[in-house]
């Protein structure tokens, strides 16, 4: 295991300390908890946004704490949902009297831990609402299953709900726009290599030199198929066709695009993926309103990428355009 770490047991704490030392103008840490909040939290009168999940997805989630996005990011152990007490502390620390929206990714563990935290907060009289992101079209959505996973599309929920809250939206309004994003966002990912959870010390699965996994989850959950290596254009074709089959967009519609690296894939390759994604949309007459290319929701050092499309309307466009100022997501 080749990693720039000191001790697998303390990676999360050390990472959070490194973050607070890097960005004190943006964030601080709640003493005794793996919770990062806005330096100026609680912001009186503003709806507060709390997101979180397992660590290993950096810059998710704490990297998005700041003006125009999140008020708190809760960091669980690597790839493990944070516990309710941590989330509860986050809620208490950021509630500015206007209520708190929890942004949850749809994993059984995350859903249950956030739900318990919400119950705890409500018992203390804090107004709490929640939304659950489930953008990953790699997983079949049926009444028999727990539904789709939440992956990189979550960042658009942070951005847009964050802008609405920053603009003074009420809890119900912020929740409604978050749900609108969730309804209109779809993602799918793939991987060239596995990653190593520090505490495990070895990869959870293997891929040979000529193989890739399509539909990979962000914790190394299996995808929809394992295939021979494909060219970048073929990969994009495949991901886009699954996404477009699920998202009701047609010629004349406008979308935001996110090409997200999983940690080990260089920007050069992400840009090459974006070229093809953009060509496909152009061919279909779908207008790209804004594009984000980089690392937004990662899986440690996994090589691979995901593509996210968000269908836009005027409301979503203006909220997407709003400024944001956080360690990992800035928009002027």
């Amino acid at each position: 295991m080749k990693k720039l770490i000191n001790n697998p047991e303390t990676v999360v704490e050390e990472m959070l300390e490194g973050m607070v030392r890097a960005f004190p103008q943006y964030v601080r840490k709640l003493e005794g908890y793996n919770v990062i909040v806005r330096a100026d939290a609680p912001v009186k009168g503003k709806v507060a946004l709390v997101s979180g999940g397992g660590s290993g997805h950096e810059p998710s989630h704490a990297g998005y704490v700041g003006r125009g996005m999140l008020d708190a990011g809760v960091a669980g152990a690597v790839f493990t949902s944070p516990t309710p007490d941590q989330i509860f502390e986050a809620i208490k620390a950021v509630d500015g009297g206007a209520g708190v929206l929890l942004i949850i990714k749809n994993y059984t563990g995350d859903v249950m831990n956030f739900e318990m935290a919400r119950e705890m907060a409500q018992m203390e009289g804090i107004q709490v609402a929640s939304v659950t992101v489930n953008d990953d079209v790699a997983v079949e959505n049926s009444t028999y299953t727990v539904g789709r996973r939440g992956i990189a599309g979550t960042v658009f929920v942070h951005k847009i709900a964050g802008a609405k809250a920053q603009a003074g939206g009420m809890l119900e309004e912020v929740k409604a726009v978050a749900e609108k994003v969730i309804k209109n966002v779809r993602s799918m990912g793939m991987a060239l290599t596995p990653c190593i959870v520090p505490a495990a010390g070895k990869p959870n699965f293997t891929l040979s030199e000529d193989e890739m996994e399509i539909g990979m989850g962000i914790h190394g959950e299996p995808g929809t198929m394992r295939t021979k290596l494909m060219k970048a254009n073929e990969v994009v074709d495949h991901l886009m066709s699954k996404i477009l089959a699920d998202l009701p967009v047609e010629s004349g519609d406008e979308v935001a695009v996110m090409v997200n690296g999983l940690g080990g894939t260089p920007l050069m390759e992400l840009l090459i993926l974006n070229r093809k994604a953009s060509q496909i949309l152009e061919d279909k007459g779908i207008k790209v309103y804004r594009t984000y290319v980089g690392e937004f929701m990662t899986s440690l050092e996994m090589a691979g990428a995901s593509i996210t499309l968000l269908k836009l309307d005027d409301e979503l466009k203006s909220l997407l355009d709003a400024p944001a100022d956080t360690p990992a997501f800035k928009q002027l």
Binding site: P82, T83, G109, N113
Partner: peptide
Amino acid sequence: LVSTVGGASGPLYGT
């Protein structure tokens, strides 16, 4: 259990 296990089993066994 709720505050140390995390994941799915923490809230389940904790509850």
